[in-house]
Write a protein that binds this DNA or RNA. Sequence first.
DNA 1: GGCTTATGCTTAACATGTTAAACAAAAGCC
DNA 2: GGCTTTTGTTTAACATGTTAAGCATAAGCC
Lengths: 186, 186
Amino acid sequence: MRKDSTSNNGSSRPESTPKQLRSFERSLPMALLRAREAVMREFRAALRRHGLTEQQWRVLRALTARDEMEILALADVTFLLPPSLSRILRDLEERKLIRRRVIPEDLRRALVSIAPRGIAMIETVGSQSEKTYSEITRRFGADRLRALHELLASLEHSLSEPKPAASPKKRALHARTRAPDLRQRS
Amino acid sequence: MRKDSTSNNGSSRPESTPKQLRSFERSLPMALLRAREAVMREFRAALRRHGLTEQQWRVLRALTARDEMEILALADVTFLLPPSLSRILRDLEERKLIRRRVIPEDLRRALVSIAPRGIAMIETVGSQSEKTYSEITRRFGADRLRALHELLASLEHSLSEPKPAASPKKRALHARTRAPDLRQRS
DNA sequence: GGCTTATGCTTAACATGTTAAACAAAAGCC
DNA sequence: GGCTTTTGTTTAACATGTTAAGCATAAGCC
């Protein structure tokens, strides 16, 4: 729905408004951004209270699921770029929330694991977080939430498949042009 | 430069999840982040080709829908913080993609509008963008896409309502702790 | 009118993400 | 064994987002 362009100024407003571009609201990226922001707003306060950024939390969360993880693997699951992760790990290590050890067989690689203080942190924040999650589920509806998860996963899957025409390279896991996000301050 | 993270080592997936924390994959913020990234990956190339960042594109898109817009209103719809928008507008103005005029009745405020070159840009990139959109729709399915949009809007709406208990303030339009995202380089 | 407060927007300072380069270790090759 | 290439990670330089302060104008009050 364009807005007819000739309301007050005829100045530079060529009536030939760009085709029928979909309305801003129907933009999928915007919708996803807004939804994500709405969700994160619920969680951010708790994280901030504990001096964790969203990314740091993602790292701790990811580590909770595995005993030890290599750094690049961690970068993959947390959706962080290696340089960012590098800084985050340094920080978390200083705060004794995680531990890191070099793999003896290959001195380039390192394994990261969550430290006791990190586990404690996860438990504290995690329980609040789960409460928030329940609240979200209650407000939004468990069935809708499930449906949403399914659609999101499906969307991701649909798009990850190579495009029919023109698929020159098989960019590995984190492609150069990956993604960001960003978040609060500690 | 491969990077198949967890291919060689078997450290993929221990089912020994320490706590009762929901698995990382079931985290709604992560799911939204991944989905958005999957979608944006499809659009980014075209934007980059035209030297537009995602945010700049959002601004132009938003301006296409209206004749003129005040800056703070623009910040709202584009989900950008005023300082970021301020820089973006300066840049877009230098590139003659937008125009800005002060409101005579209130010299503090300004109205921004898209300039002819901006419209041209929108048309070029927009048509490619719509093609990409069609492609996404085709791959994902129009019905599922519609369902997804609906769920996202509904989620956003569910969460925007004041929580039952404790709703101290009515933070106006853009709350302090808003959101970011971030993106490519120009 | 003169004073204080509020508003719209920008600038400044800082934190963080991004990209490219650097480094060290391992793997391949002769 | 040397040599080159590849791999895992970090550092450096830069772009961008974020927060707080600044500035100018407007509005409210006396």
